[in-house]
Amino acid sequence: MSYAGDLELARRCAAGEEQAWERFVLEYRPLLYRAADALDPSGGARDLADSLYADLYGLAEPGAERQSLFRYFQGRSSLATWLRAVLSQRYVDRLRAGARLEPLPDENHVAHRDEGRGTGPPDPDRLRHVALLQQALARAIEELDARDRLRLGCYYAQQLKLAETGRILKEHEATVSRQLARTRRTLRDNVERRLREDHRLNDAQIAECFELASEDPGPLDLREMLADQVPADAARKKSEPDRSI
């Protein structure tokens, strides 16, 4: 599809043509605001739309040449889609920058969770099983092909709907659903195989792993879990016989 018309409009806007700018304001300014509201229904992204609007106009320092953001538009997509992409980019970057400033969770959050349950000290087997399961799951995910990982990421990490995930992958939502089910089966098989072969867990222990993880999914962080658990696991193997064998 050709976006020559959009490219021409962008070129004329970048050149500061008044008529082109009027047309842009008329056609695309509402679009920017709607996109901003879709990103943050509370209106928190409107300032991003405003600043993007200003960058598109290309404010210049006194004496300096005007540099409009339009010059980056190459016409590979519609102008409307490109504007949404730039706005989304700024929104996500701001979101991520803000997230970096958020305080880290309490380092004892796992222990607090367990305390909240009133179950006494954490069961070492439970922690170990959850860690093993997470480790096996991480490996199994790494082995998936890119498209499957992207589908998982969109659906589970970004919490998109099936239809939205399908729009990214150019798949029908029914196909997304089928592919997710297939990927889950693959992951389950791979995780079970790893637990069975690498860690010598039997069927009952594997079932317990899944049960524990399902009971308390919690804010699991593999890096954190494995850093804590795997060395402990190795030390434990040295000091006492592995009961899982």
Binding site: L137, R184, A213, P217, L222
Partner: peptide, 8 residues
């Protein structure tokens, strides 16, 4: 597995 993925 669905639950596990959602949490992980």
């Amino acid at each position: 597995m669905d639950k596990l993925l959602a949490s992980t």
